[in-house]
Structures are given as C-alpha cells and as structure tokens.
Simulated scan of single mutants.
Amino acid sequence: MIDYTRPNWPPSQRNSAAPPRSHSPTSAKGGIVLIVSPFASITALALVTGWWLIVLGVMEAIHAVQMRRATN
C-alpha cells in the first residue's frame, strides 16, 4: 500500500519539516549567477520557458491532429 500522506524522503529526514536540500555544485553556481546578474538570468529563464511552451504547444497540436485522424 502506498502512503500518499508522507513524502518519500530519506529515513534520516523523514521527521523533518523541510524537504532534503540539494548540495550540488550546479545549484551553487546557478545561485551565484542569479545574484550577480538577476536581470540577465530572468531574461534567459523567460526565453527558455517561452521556447519550451511553444514546443509543447506544437507537440500538443500534432498529437491532437493524430488523434483526430485515428478516430475518423
């Protein structure tokens, strides 16, 4: 039986109120870049998100056409 009320955290942190932290070097570098140049980071994030949403929209449209052809 799956218990959906408790997150799947490591046993050492199951009684903690906060989720486990990520101590990866990539996270630290990303945080430093965000602090040093916040506007460039926000611009890059907005562009990546915009392109990602465009790609997802195109894929959804293609999938919808494929489903419509399959049902006819």
Rank of each mutant, 00 (worst) to 15 (best):
residue 63 H to C: 01
residue 1 M to C: 04
residue 69 R to I: 04
residue 26 T to H: 02
residue 52 W to V: 04
residue 11 P to V: 05
residue 51 W to E: 13
residue 2 I to C: 09
residue 59 M to E: 15
residue 62 I to Q: 10
residue 33 V to G: 00
residue 39 F to D: 05
residue 30 G to H: 14
residue 51 W to N: 07
residue 48 V to S: 11
residue 68 R to N: 02
residue 23 H to M: 09
residue 18 A to K: 12
residue 27 S to Y: 12
residue 1 M to A: 07
residue 23 H to R: 03
residue 23 H to C: 07
residue 32 I to V: 10
residue 39 F to C: 01
residue 35 I to G: 02
residue 1 M to W: 02
residue 21 R to W: 07
residue 69 R to K: 06
residue 59 M to R: 07
residue 36 V to C: 08
residue 33 V to P: 00
residue 1 M to I: 05
residue 36 V to N: 06
residue 31 G to C: 06
residue 13 Q to M: 13
residue 70 A to D: 08
residue 40 A to K: 15
residue 64 A to M: 06
residue 32 I to L: 15
residue 62 I to V: 12
residue 58 V to R: 05
residue 34 L to R: 15
residue 2 I to H: 10
residue 10 P to R: 11
residue 52 W to N: 10
residue 58 V to M: 04
residue 62 I to K: 14
residue 31 G to L: 12
residue 72 N to E: 09
residue 46 A to K: 06
residue 20 P to V: 03
residue 47 L to S: 12
residue 53 L to A: 09
residue 8 N to D: 15
residue 43 T to C: 07
residue 40 A to L: 14
residue 37 S to H: 08
residue 47 L to Y: 11
residue 57 G to T: 06
residue 62 I to S: 08
residue 45 L to K: 01
residue 8 N to S: 09
residue 67 M to H: 04
residue 64 A to Q: 08
residue 15 N to R: 07
residue 63 H to V: 00
residue 41 S to F: 12
residue 67 M to V: 04
residue 30 G to T: 07
residue 39 F to M: 08
residue 21 R to K: 15
residue 5 T to E: 08
residue 1 M to V: 13
residue 3 D to L: 01
residue 2 I to M: 11
residue 53 L to K: 11
residue 61 A to H: 11
residue 19 P to D: 00
residue 50 G to Y: 12
residue 42 I to A: 14
residue 60 E to F: 05
residue 51 W to T: 07
residue 67 M to L: 05
residue 61 A to R: 15
residue 27 S to E: 08
residue 15 N to D: 12
residue 6 R to E: 10
residue 67 M to W: 02
residue 52 W to A: 15
residue 8 N to H: 09
residue 14 R to I: 05
residue 66 Q to E: 00
residue 20 P to W: 10
residue 16 S to N: 13
residue 24 S to M: 03
residue 3 D to R: 01
residue 2 I to Q: 13
residue 34 L to Y: 14
residue 34 L to H: 14
residue 3 D to E: 02
